[in-house]
Nucleic acid binder design. Sequence first.
DNA 1: AATAATACCGAACAGTATGTTCCGTACAGA
DNA 2: TCTGTACGGAACATACTGTTCGGTATTATT
Lengths: 182, 182
Amino acid sequence: MDRRQRKTREAIFGAFTALLAEKDFEHITVGEIIDRADVGRATFYSHFETKDFLLKELCAELFCHISDAVEENCDHKHIFDCVAPDSAFLHLFMHLQKNDNGILELLSSRNNGLFLRYFKDNLMRFAENQLPHFISEKNKSLPKSYLVNHIASTFVETVHWWLTGGRKESPETMTGYFLAVL
Amino acid sequence: MDRRQRKTREAIFGAFTALLAEKDFEHITVGEIIDRADVGRATFYSHFETKDFLLKELCAELFCHISDAVEENCDHKHIFDCVAPDSAFLHLFMHLQKNDNGILELLSSRNNGLFLRYFKDNLMRFAENQLPHFISEKNKSLPKSYLVNHIASTFVETVHWWLTGGRKESPETMTGYFLAVL
DNA sequence: AATAATACCGAACAGTATGTTCCGTACAGA
DNA sequence: TCTGTACGGAACATACTGTTCGGTATTATT
């Protein structure tokens, strides 16, 4: 990729991220983004079709980065395929704790609805692989898709509660909470 | 309240509701609303400060209406204060099933993110009253606010799953699912 | 080093949405 | 009947979007 392209792309992502920490996504204008990124208007639109696509790509990068990092921590195993749930989700919490890329600012900002939604979408396939670990006598007759949805959304809601509460608990504690209610 | 005010208010709500069933909230313009409601532009803005406030007031009316109806069904008892959880949540599902005010169209449209959020906010205080019914050996040491949040969001996610799946299950079945995972 | 390709800027552009203001009309409640 | 006020219609300034253009600087290619 052309170095110029990479630079402007990063400048736009940076400006956009900073703005997201300040105000609602809906109230951010392209004008503000290009001002802060110091980039021409036409340049912006040559990179991103609309503001929504910019958000989508940002989310994709962030969550993709999380997945990669979690898998690395786990000796290149496909963590969500084979590892026990406490370990898998603990690593997710730990990576969030590290707060790379300022992902926590985004998840806890006023825009958290948007991000948590993307977060959940990305978690669904993980939850699917984790499903066998959560089957019990009580829920084994329930539809699989309902259980998968429940696992993913419970994790997202747990993260959300953690963030809005100021992230006082350790990743270990949060993993404990999460597993206790499932 | 002046009959004229009431009429235009209802006309706007009606037009807005119909539009919400067709497209995203963000892509609905004030122009479209007042066209369909057959109302002057200035009139709209004398009723609602912005489009966001219109949404807020619509949600408030709908959820207020649900709460009232559920309480009536229950012989004017404060259902969420005193009734067993299966009964309380069953009544909620049944009222949703009846689909008054087209609330289901709103909850299942592309706008569901917004509405489910309001829905959850309204459920939080109910979940608080229901909390004692959900305390178990396993979760009794967890923070109360975490459990309340978990109950409310699990219910919302259950409704969401129900809606996106086409509402094929009966309210009794859904209540069963909901209680099984808690 | 010379060349071709292309990413960029900046400015301008039409199109559309917002929220406000005005005055004349029609309806409500007393 | 009378007074207040909600309404309609239209115009308005302002702001944001997404596109277009010609000129410049940087990149990759040879």
